[in-house]
Design a protein around this nucleic acid. Structure first.
Lengths: 206, 206
DNA sequence: TAGATTGTTAATCGATTAACAATC
DNA sequence: TAGATTGTTAATCGATTAACAATC
């Protein structure tokens, strides 16, 4: 399976496909066409076919895509066929909310460690996790084979936390802090700053 | 100020510019050039100049942009020069975390009402807000002149909540539920689903 | 077989970047 | 004036969409 420069836009659509395919699976739907998908997801059918064709020939001409097979394939592509351990730094309101979130459990991703720099938060329980001090981060990340880090600290601390994540061997970061973070090229970083999101929404008000 | 088809990509960068300009303002920096900005934000300077030029001639040739003036202008463009009231539905962990978030206070956006369909949550206090029942939504949204709605309910409820928002006269929606939501063309909807975000991150793991 | 739908090439569209005259 | 930097046009790049032969 060779991957000739997959654009980020394509990668971002794969989880969308997967989510709806899972719904179809639950409804016992066997087969789906690109135009079915396109209609439901507000996407162009040609785009969906093209996206999928980057990774292989998953469909059958005249028939469409087998739902279960396509789920399996997309999960492989997204590496969701293996367990992926996630760490989170910043046990504030948002950090706790995300840690409690179990929605991704079914996708083999799980927050397995939570850290905070504040003495007073260390030792707190969040579900079945205990907030650990920053000093334990490197050790824990290595021993638990944690590969993705989530940042939910104030903007002023975000770069520092990212640096520590990288030092600890994290491969990808999801940053919720409203800050630009500099990372080496080999580290993948996505931003999920909802103040930015809200502000750009305001633009579209009359 | 005419706006000849501003692309979404442009609108999404404006809050990023604003955020960094606010930092410069706090540092008493008077003037900034597009290449300064570009370096700090990892963007092409030509792109920054072009983005801003959609809305007016804010810079001075040979000098750059006056920080305070540009802040004022971008705030106008994003409509952050007026108070914008926000409602939130779904007083779960994430909903409570967002309601507590005061980071956008400085930008004149504020969550002023929280709703939940569960009897047991109605009446709960979140900071200085009281969780209201869904039946009060339409009335509250109209009387408080709420224009943006945030959805933090389970995916299965998201479409229903969106429909109620729209019925109540909401103009734009920020959806945190992992679901595709159908809305009329005149309603703006942004998605902030972090499971999707995490899954696309996984793709980039080795 | 006839109808449906894929995978893929070509055409289109739009966004980013380069270049440069204007000018502070 | 000389140096810097804008605003804007033109060039490039990349992503989306249309079209269609292949084939189930």
């Amino acid at each position: 399976m060779k991957t000739p420069k997959i654009s980020e836009a394509v990668v971002r659509r794969l989880p969308i496909y997967l989510r709806y395919l899972n719904v179809l699976h639950l409804q016992n739907v066997q087969t789906v066409s690109s135009s079915d998908l396109g209609q439901k997801l507000d996407l162009n059918p040609a785009q969906i076919r093209k996206d999928l064709a980057y990774f292989g020939e998953f469909g059958k001409k005249g028939i469409g895509y087998d739902v279960n097979y396509l789920i399996e394939k997309i999960r492989q592509i997204l590496k969701l066929d293996q367990f992926i351990q996630v760490a989170l730094v910043g046990a504030g309101n948002l950090g706790r909310a995300l840690s409690n979130y179990n929605a991704f459990l079914k996708d083999n991703m799980k927050i397995v460690a939570v850290f905070d720099a504040m003495e007073s938060k260390v030792g707190d329980k969040i579900n079945n996790l205990t907030v650990q001090p920053m000093q334990e981060m490197k050790q824990t990340i290595k021993s638990m084979n944690i590969r993705i880090g989530i940042i939910t600290v104030p903007a002023s601390e975000a770069q520092h936390v990212a640096d520590e994540f990288i030092q600890s061997g994290i491969e990808a970061i999801l940053n919720f802090a409203p800050a630009i973070i500099k990372v080496p090229n080999e580290i993948r970083i996505h931003h999920a700053d909802f103040t930015t999101e809200l502000q750009s929404l305001a633009f579209y008000l009359d």
